[in-house]
Structures are given as structure tokens and as C-alpha cells.
Design a protein around this nucleic acid. Structure first.
Lengths: 226, 226
DNA sequence: GTCTATAGACGGATAGAC
DNA sequence: GTCTATCCGTCTATAGAC
């Protein structure tokens, strides 16, 4: 924790100190980001308990001690991965707001979630793993960040239903359905590949599946444009 | 492995040996079943790597050495849990065959899968966890047992589509949707509870959700009775 | 078939030189 | 900020008495 010295000592007008601080800050930033990315992969492959800091450090090309210099405990690193994932999830969630037309809004959201599953499947797996094992390390993210967003979407869906633009769906169950099916394509890819008899899902096949999922979801909620 | 002696030695007409063998076999059977049940819970809570044989033995009320007497390695026990889960999954799968009416057949299957999620959520979590981490310990179950069943259902769905009893869905994507949403209620219960602001899902609420899910799935595939 | 004790490997975290 | 060496706890699995 030698870096706290720079903050504790008043060096505001100390010419050489400021660039130095910036350079060190940059090193820290880039090393941390690299470690978080590598950690996401190892946590996805092995789970929190199964992942070792040695594996993560090795994948990052750093000695294990450096990892513990930036993230004192394995749990600190794990938390950072989860927070990073939430930010990405939240950006995809924004898609829901863009239109008052349920076909557009819901279709767009499903496409955004499918794209996220395709772009960052390892992250989705870390998230799923954490929830499956009780979500003890992300209760705060769920109740303080995800829940308010979900509640606001429930209101929008209810208004669509009351205006006759949607079948009388239970909004939460419907949202869970969207999450379940879109994340399934990231989390369960090993099963999907085994059952399709392929080694991996091609980009083209994924795009086809995306449109099929959109069609299923739109029919499920009976959406029609206003 | 002292038990193999009983099989190796010809003692067919040895009066006291036969009941003894049966008694011992019964002890083995009941201890193994108990261990498998306890293991399922611990694997669900902690994952394969996070679960220790000591935890499983403690939950079973046995010394750790006894566990290794019945299941030489942790992986042997884990495999048994997975095989046991598949048997249950397969029984629920039978529901699909009972009717040529797609509304009945699909609705019944969704209800059976939801009931399985409610009855054995820990098992579902072990399954999900295994798939998420690459399914390396159940490739054989997927390709030799699940895949043939899925392929046979695809044929049935295609026939419904061609007879105009179903919207033109892609059968695999549709089946994956059913699996994703029904298993979501077992695997992601921690998230669902956090977002509903409840400690657990009541039996009554689960029944309501089940019917809502059935309605969503039936609308999604556009099923109608012949 | 049951149980205590322990071997042997591995993992998280830290000390301290550079 | 980097890295080697190491402490100490935990884990799987087994030896061997009962």
C-alpha cells in the first residue's frame, strides 16, 4: 500500500511528482484491467473455488505475488469481475428504453442480450455460477442495481398490457423468460454444442438463432405495434 | 474391495453366506444412496471444486474414510450424482410422449419440468454447474442419452408444424427455450428471490408461475389442438 | 464395514530483497 | 512496482487398527 503515501503527502505543486503519479496510476490501471479479464476467463472455466490465483496470474503472465499486490485477496478480484459484468449488463439493458413500441423495444432488448451472450459468454458464466451458488457476493448488486431497473420495466410492460399492445403477461415472469433464454446460449454452450454435434456455434448460426428467439419471445407476449 | 471375494468364491449353496451377502449389499446400497443425496446438496452449494469430501461426509454423518470406502474418489461420487440426475430428467421427459395434441404434450412437459425444478432444485444446479464449466464429466450422457431423445422430439415437433398445429418454429431452439426457462426457476432462485424481495418462493407462487410459463410457451409456439 | 491418524499435494497469502 | 521463497492451512486419499 505504498501508493497511499502519494495521496497522504501534499505534493500538489511538486512538478516531477505529478507525472510520476500519473505514470504509476496508468500502470496500475492497465495491470488491473488485464488481471480482471484473465480472472473472468478462469472463474468462468473453474468457478470461484476451483480457480486458483496461481492460474489467473499465469494466464496474465505475471507472478502470483503481483496479483496479490493489486488485489489483496482472491475475493477482491472476484468482486471486481462481478462489478465489471454488471456495467456491461446495464448497458445492454438501456436498449429497452429506446421505443414505446413493444415489438421494437422487446425485440431490440432480446437482440442486445443475445449479442452480449455472444460477445462475452465467459462473463455470463461467471454471473450464472455466482447466482447458482447463492449469490452471496452480489446481493448488493441485485437489490440496489438490478431490482430498481427491473421494477421500472415492470411498469412499462404493465402499461403496454393495459393499452392492449401486449397479451396479459405477468411482467416479472416474462422478463425472467427473456433472461433465461438469452443467457442460456452463453451459459449452456457446451450442452448446445454436444446436442448439435458441433464443436462451436458459428457466427452465422448464432444470428439465425437470435432471430428465431426474437420471434418466439414476441409471439410469447403477443406484442403488436401501437 | 473385500466384497469382490463373495463374487469370486462359489458359495451358491452356502446357507449362512447368502443372507450375509444380502445384508451387506443392503448396507452398501443404503449408505451409497445417502451419500449421493448429501453430495448432491454440497455440490449444488459449492460446485465440484468447492465441495470437499469432508463436508459431504459430515452432512451424511459418516467419517470421511467411509465415503472413500464407497466412492474411491470424489469424481466417482460426482459422476454418480450426475447419472442419478439424468434418470430423473429422463422420467420427466417421458411426459412429452403422452399425447398427439401439441397443447397437451407441450403444456404437460413444461409442467413436468417446472415440477422437477421445484422438487429437486439442488440437482438442477449441479447439472447447470457441470454444463457451465464445460460438461467434461458428462459428454457421454449428453451425446448418448440426451441427444437421441432430443432428436426424436424434433421429429415430432416438425410433424406438428407441417400439419399446421404449430407456428413454424425451429424445433431445437424451441426445446432449448423450454429447458432454459423451466430450469431458470431452480438454478437462479437466489436471483429471483432477491428481485422479488422474498426469502423464498412459496408453493402457491410457484404454481402460479408454472401456469404463466405454460401460457408463454404455448403462445410462443402458437400451438393449437388438432 | 467402521474409524483414527496421517501422508502428501496444493492453494492463499506474505516477507523481504531488488 | 516486481519477484522469489516460504509459511500455514486445507484438501484428497490411504494405512492400518478394530
Amino acid at each position: 500500500m505504498t501508493h497511499d503515501d502519494a495521496l497522504a503527502t501534499p505534493t500538489e505543486n511538486d512538478e516531477p511528482a505529478a507525472p510520476m503519479r500519473r505514470r504509476k496510476a496508468h500502470i496500475r490501471e492497465s495491470n488491473e484491467a488485464h488481471l480482471v479479464a484473465c480472472a473472468e476467463a478462469v472463474f468462468a472455466e473453474r468457478g470461484l473455488a476451483g480457480a486458483s490465483t496461481a492460474m489467473i496470474a499465469e494466464r496474465a503472465g505475471l507472478p502470483k505475488a503481483n496479483l496479490h499486490y493489486y488485489f489483496p485477496t482472491k475475493l477482491d478480484l472476484y468482486r471486481r469481475v462481478l462489478e465489471d459484468l454488471f456495467e456491461d449488463w446495464y448497458r445492454a439493458a438501456d436498449t429497452f428504453e429506446c421505443s414505446d413500441d413493444p415489438v421494437e423495444a422487446i425485440g431490440g432488448y432480446v437482440r442486445a442480450k443475445m449479442a452480449l451472450s455472444q460477445r462475452r459468454p465467459l462473463g455470463s458464466k461467471v454471473w450464472a455460477n455466482e447466482i447458482i451458488h447463492g449469490a452471496e457476493h452480489m446481493q448488493d448488486i441485485l437489490t440496489q442495481r438490478v431490482k430498481p431497473w427491473l421494477d421500472s420495466r415492470v411498469v412499462v410492460i404493465e402499461s403496454w398490457v393495459s393499452r392492449g399492445l401486449l397479451a396479459p403477461v405477468e411482467p416479472q415472469t416474462f422478463m425472467f423468460m427473456i433472461w433465461a433464454i438469452t443467457q442460456h446460449y452463453a451459459d449452456f454452450d457446451a450442452q448446445i454444442c454436444a446436442l448439435r454435434g458441433e464443436r462451436e456455434i458459428s457466427r452465422r448460426a448464432f444470428d439465425d438463432v437470435t432471430e428465431e428467439v426474437v420471434a418466439l419471445v414476441i409471439r410469447a407476449c403477443g406484442a403488436r405495434s401501437p
